[in-house]
Amino acid sequence: MWSIVILLILSILAYVVTDELIPKLKDLFIKAGLYGIDLCKSNNKKIPEAIGVVSGCIFLVTSFIFIPIAFGNGLMERELFPHNEFAELLAALLSICCMLLLGFADDVLDLKWRYKLLLPTVASLPLLVVYYVNFNSTTFVIPIPLRQWLGSSINIGLLYYVYMGMLAVFCTNAINILAGINGLEVGQSVIIALSIIIFDIIELRGDQFKAHMFSLYIMTPYLATTLALLKHNWYPSKVFVGDTFCYVSGMTFAVVGILSHFSKTVLLFFLPQVINFLYSVPQLFRIIPCPRHRLPKYNAEMDLLEPSRTLIVKKEMTIINKALVQVLTILHLIDTIEDSESITINNMTLINFTLIKLGPMSEGTLTAKLLIFQCVCTLIAFLIRYPMASYFYDT
């Protein structure tokens, strides 16, 4: 366990370095044209963009420094060197590094949405290759109530690799979709990282000790650098994290979920992101018009955020459009304003939905409420993972 102590020391140093480096690099990003204007503020101050690349780089450097410490015993006795575990860690860091590079390219070039789906798929390839070489386990355990029809387990073969690739795509984009207000992207990532670390600590007593140690090796420095980034991104934000941070975070969570064999548990920790994705599907797939930005609307007079809206012209509505809007209205999932020629509805994100149900509020309050919801969902995830799981699985 001495390696964990050293990892904690390195992570604390990573926090300090990230915290010190971000303010010093802010002007450099602005001079390079990497800045934005906070649309939820009344001022037009330039705020550096894509600062997630700083925390991402420090996270990777810390992980690289830790490699000889994690495998110190193996380096001393080469015949006992754990080649498989070493390959897993290198593949994990390679995938994260690829996502850092591709995410920064997205921030600089402002790539189209179709590329946002392709990039995580490409970056996950080293991960999937190592999984195939070391494990190649493509079997799902069937819940107890379904075993009389499907058996105790089912091997889905290639579809399992498709599932893992889709997991990487979902994790990277789910954080990016639930974003747009100060501190939300980084805040939700901190809570998910803490949830995974708590889960790892609980499971260290089980038979998957090495897998959860591997997860801790990655999540601990990630959490440290992300906490430093949160300090500067919290309301009122001094920096914007950019797509770089969302991509690195999503790939990091996907990496530990896949290689530590608890991808379904990781998805449980993504419950708010899953809800937000499902709620956003009509706009993401253009069934309902989707503007480029679905940020909440800033009311300068009241200094509060209100739900943003999108316009649907009645003449252009298909039968599917009409039926969907009607169902969502009946279920009170959208707020509609209708006249003779058009229907105006709120943009379908969890952020706007919160504003509809709880009313206009300040940006800092809105972020806090959404992060409280993330914490509540984490408690639900642990409830599902432990007490409830015994009803569906043998352990």
Rank of each mutant, 00 (worst) to 15 (best):
G165I: 02
G165H: 04
S152L: 14
G151L: 04
L178F: 15
M166T: 12
T172N: 08
G151W: 10
A174C: 12
G151I: 00
L167E: 10
M164G: 00
I154P: 00
S153L: 11
N155E: 02
L150P: 00
A168N: 09
Y161C: 09
I154T: 07
L158T: 13
V169A: 13
G165S: 09
L150F: 12
L178N: 15
A179P: 09
Y163T: 09
L158S: 10
S153G: 01
L158G: 06
W149C: 03
S153I: 02
I154L: 08
M164P: 01
F170C: 06
Y161Q: 08
W149P: 01
A168C: 13
Y163I: 11
A174E: 06
N173E: 11
S153D: 09
F170L: 09
C171L: 13
C171I: 07
N176I: 00
I154D: 00
N155L: 02
I175N: 15
M164I: 10
I156C: 06
L150S: 08
T172Y: 01
N176V: 11
C171R: 04
I154F: 05
L167M: 11
V169P: 03
G151R: 05
S153Y: 11
N173P: 06
Y163N: 03
N155W: 00
L150D: 00
Y160M: 12
L150Y: 12
I156S: 03
G165M: 04
V162R: 00
L158A: 14
S153W: 08
S153M: 11
I175M: 06
F170T: 05
A174L: 07
L150R: 02
L178D: 14
T172V: 11
I177L: 15
